[in-house]
């Protein structure tokens, strides 16, 4: 049994009715039909071309785990994974992602079955208000993959060597995710624990 808190939480995923577009993009000033693949499920959405990927997720698919902290690429709360790479979903248009594989925080784990990174954040109290948390977790998952892939960072001492999973590397690489509650020290401990596990 789990301790409960009192708000019923819906995780509805809406699928808009209507014909599947023959092509991903039709040239109209409004009402483009876009096929988005999110967390393994395809959705056909009729979207204003101005709709960001973040707003498509939050307002059209009701996947509100990706947060809008600034809407200008200044905070990282909207971080999602697109084709396995982390991006700020607020600074890209949904119509530019037809055919892409989008993974949001909801796609990593559920309250009943947490992803190891989510579980580590709970264990190390790597959050307080919770608003930056999904972005931190998506970023953290990607950071470990980036180090694994040998992508250097500003603090990598030897650019020609493979980067290591040091705390300095984690802190630099996570710096695009602001946490005003100041959980950084705990977040790095959570990531370090996950990084230390055998692959």
């Amino acid at each position: 049994m789990e301790a409960g808190i009192g708000t019923a939480v819906g995780t509805a995923v809406t699928t808009l009715a209507g014909p599947v577009a023959a092509q991903a993009i039709s040239r109209e000033s409004t009402g483009l039909t876009v096929r988005l693949k999110v967390n393994g499920t395809e959705h056909d959405l009729a979207l204003d071309p101005r709709t960001t990927l973040l707003d498509a997720l939050r307002e059209h698919l009701h996947l509100t785990g990706s947060k809008k902290g600034c809407d200008h690429g200044q905070c990282g709360a909207c971080t999602a994974l697109v084709n396995g790479r982390r991006i700020n979903s607020c600074l890209t248009l949904a119509v530019m992602h037809a055919g892409d594989e989008v993974t949001t925080i909801e796609g990593l784990g559920t309250p009943e079955k947490l992803h190891p990174m989510q579980a580590a954040f709970v264990k190390h109290d790597g959050y307080q208000c919770g608003y930056c948390t999904p972005g931190q977790i998506c970023s953290a998952v990607a950071v470990l993959q980036e180090i694994e892939a040998g992508i250097p960072s500003y603090v990598t001492e030897d650019l020609t060597a493979a980067p290591q999973r040091t705390e300095a590397e984690l802190r630099e690489r996570m710096s695009g995710n602001i946490c005003r509650c100041g959980a950084y020290s705990n977040i790095v401990e959570a990531i370090t624990e996950v990084a230390g596990r055998p692959a």
Partner: peptide, 12 residues
């Protein structure tokens, strides 16, 4: 106790 909701994006 609100950790699982917050870390999975389900806290509204």
């Amino acid at each position: 106790i609100d950790g699982p909701l917050k870390t999975t994006g389900h806290a509204p």
